[in-house]
């Protein structure tokens, strides 16, 4: 009895079979999504229309058309700018909020509750809420700007300000994700290291810069991974606010693909756009994932 049995329970072939049996239904469901995915790749090589059954194989024709479509390059640019702005805004902001929530105070637990709220609101609802507040004439945001003596802003209605306005809404919804991860990161800083720093006479800024920030690097990479991947394919906030306008200022690849399919019925071309986007997501998130694993390994090797 005893030791041998436990070992058999964990490693024996019957145990292994049982474990795989537990895993299989989940894998079947997840991997069954490969079928539509592969089907979609085939569709991207055809001139399939959404509501017509016929399709002709046109090879890389859709991709060739895209290369010669200026709007495709605009959308690609918007997609990348959106993702960069998201990271540039949300990581420092999330870090600031997390540091604030790390300081013991009476109101901390109240704010820890409220800070997650935007993340749990449907993005489409957040989009509509902000669109209401961003109305140039009647919206409350311009009234607030004027109340503090600033000129009104054109927000979503002007091509030059629309993209940054959508990014601001994205920041409202998703900065809480960064805050949550950074709070976990700050809590995992070994107290003895911080204590040693304090004994050596380091001030708050030095402790942040020399101890906490280096410790947080893997967490920052992790937040960047999730936020970049999500914002490259952001659709719902844009769909709820501008649908790509005005004058294509917020047309990202994902929105362009949706419109190509449902507005122009060009399913083949829509799939071609989606796969360009998929490739970008795959490459960038793969890169960040590798970076994160390297960070993790380095940490546990020490």
């Amino acid at each position: 009895m005893s030791g041998h049995d436990v070992e058999a329970y964990r490693r024996g072939w019957r145990a292994r079979l049982t474990y795989w049996g537990m895993l299989v239904p989940a894998l079947v469901i997840l991997f069954s999504s490969l079928y539509p995915f592969l089907q979609g790749i085939l569709t991207s090589l055809t001139n399939r229309k959404l509501y017509l059954q016929t399709e002709d194989f046109i090879g890389l024709g859709n991709f060739e058309t895209l290369i010669h479509t200026p709007l495709f390059w605009t959308a690609l640019g918007n997609t990348l700018i959106y993702a960069v702005l998201v990271v540039v805004i949300q990581i420092p902001l999330g870090l600031g909020f997390a540091l604030l929530l790390d300081v013991p105070s009476r109101v901390r637990s109240f704010f820890r509750t409220t800070v997650v709220l935007p993340l749990l609101v449907p993005p489409v609802v957040a989009g509509l809420m902000w669109k209401t507040m961003m109305q140039p004439q009647s919206g409350v945001l311009n009234w607030l700007l004027q109340a503090v003596g600033l000129p009104p802003f054109s927000w979503l209605t002007d091509p030059s300000t629309a993209l940054i306005s959508v990014v601001l809404i994205d920041a409202w919804v998703f900065t809480p994700f960064a805050v949550i991860i950074f709070m976990a990161g700050l809590q995992s800083v070994p107290p003895e290291i911080e204590e040693a720093g304090r004994v050596d006479g380091a001030n708050a800024w030095q402790i942040f810069r020399l101890i906490r920030l280096p410790w947080l690097v893997p967490y920052i990479v992790l937040v960047a991974l999730f936020r970049v991947a999500d914002s490259l394919k952001q659709l719902e906030i844009i769909y709820a606010t501008t649908r790509g306008g005005p004058l294509n200022a917020t047309r990202t690849l994902h929105i362009m693909a949706y419109e190509e399919a449902y507005r122009w019925s060009n399913l083949g071309r829509a799939m071609a756009i989606v796969f360009v986007l998929w490739l970008i997501c795959y490459l960038i998130s793969g890169l960040l994932l590798a970076l994160w694993q390297k960070q993790e390994k380095a940490r546990y090797a020490v």
């Binding site: 997840l30 999504s33 079928y35 539509p36 995915f37 089907q39 979609g40 569709t43 999730f226 991947a229 999500d230 490259l232 394919k233 659709l235 690849l253 994902h254 693909a257 949706y258 399919a261 399913l267 829509a270 799939m271 989606v274 796969f275 986007l277 998929w278 997501c281 795959y282 998130s285």
Partner: peptide
Amino acid sequence: FRFGPELAIILPLFLI
């Protein structure tokens, strides 16, 4: 499965 654009799966799924 989180990291790809949803339309890559659900547009073909629409036809299916």
